[in-house]
């Protein structure tokens, strides 16, 4: 990285460290921090929309739709989430391949499950066997994002469902009394007001989502946990210019500090948002703020 890094064996102390921390492999580690942020940036809105759809379904007056929504909320709780992560990655992959198989190879006559194998025709493989490496990586990452969104969508649905029920019922009755239809009252009265009730739950969910990101490792994505293990393992002079003993302890300490500061910063930001949203609301927090100002 730096010009003085050409011969690492002559370096000492901080200069050695500065060269060590900027090797190509370490760049991959920093790049994977970006992957975590990207995952959060995509998953949060997608999971929120899954959650909104789930909550709407659960609140629906059409019985089957309401069952589907409630089942979606209930099923992800009560069972360890890691099991879902491991399950969905394979299940989604096989599901997509099966769908493509049905469309692309309609005249395939062999069974898809042959003993312990899952066989689809070559054209239905995802990604295709001759696809470049980056397509494989993007596909793996998208599966991970989808899995996270499904699991966290259920958690968000639960929070939003609770928030919808927390909006004072008199508000809805007033809306009906003014002649609004069910749909109008939902979008114009319920939805704008539910966010302040949902925010504590959603911010808790955000913290949980941050803390779930290292599970990407289990989904086969080369994330920070992967690189911390890889880079921290002891290196002999034969294979690298920067030999060192087993440093995995320090790498994981670094990750621990990274996550601690990340959650702390989020906590502070969310507290500010909550203050802003509570302003002028008919809740205990809003009332306290009104009193403090008066």
């Amino acid at each position: 990285m730096f010009p003085y890094c050409t011969d690492p064996s002559t370096l000492e102390g901080l200069t050695w460290l500065s060269c060590y921390l900027t090797t190509t492999k370490h760049m991959m580690l920093f790049y994977s921090l970006g992957t975590v942020l990207l995952l959060l940036a995509i998953t949060a809105p997608v999971a929120l929309s899954f959650g909104f759809a789930g909550a709407m379904a659960a609140k629906s007056h059409i019985a089957p739709l309401s069952w589907v929504g409630k089942l979606y909320i209930a099923i992800v709780r009560g069972v360890p989430d890691i099991a879902f992560f491991l399950f969905f990655v394979i299940a989604l992959d096989q599901g997509f391949e099966w769908l493509r198989h049905q469309i692309k190879c309609p005249d395939w006559d062999q069974p898809i499950r042959q003993g312990n194998d899952f066989v689809v025709c070559a054209a239905a493989k995802l990604p295709l066997n001759d696809a470049p490496q980056w397509v494989h990586e993007v596909y793996g990452f998208s599966l991970a994002v989808l899995t996270f969104s499904i699991v966290f969508g259920a958690f968000a649905a639960n929070v939003l469902y609770g928030a919808m029920r927390a909006v004072p019922h008199a508000q809805m009755e007033t809306a009906y009394a003014y002649g609004m239809t069910r749909r109008q009252a939902f979008w114009r009265v319920l939805v704008p007001q539910m966010w302040v009730y949902a925010l504590p739950g959603l911010s808790n969910l955000w913290m949980v989502l941050i803390k779930a990101t290292p599970l990407l490792f289990l989904l086969g994505v080369e994330d920070i946990v992967y690189w911390a293990r890889e880079l921290g393992a002891s290196k002999t002079p034969r294979y690298t210019d920067y030999p060192h003993p087993d440093w995995r302890l320090w790498y994981f300490l670094g990750l621990l500090v990274f996550y601690l500061s990340f959650t702390r910063v989020s906590e502070i930001v969310l507290e500010r948002i909550m203050r802003r949203l509570s302003h002028g609301q008919a809740t205990a927090a809003g009332e306290a703020m009104r009193r403090a100002e008066a």
Binding site: I210, K211, A212, T213, P214, L215, F217, V225, A228, R229, G232, D246, R248, L249, F252, L253, L255, L256, Y259, L260, T263, R264
Partner: peptide, 19 residues
């Protein structure tokens, strides 16, 4: 410290610490 960081990382850290 224990509520602010992922349990997954705590396990890894604990294992390498004991090692």
């Amino acid at each position: 410290v224990f509520r602010g960081s992922p349990l997954f990382i705590q396990f890894f850290f604990g294992y390498f610490l004991f090692l």
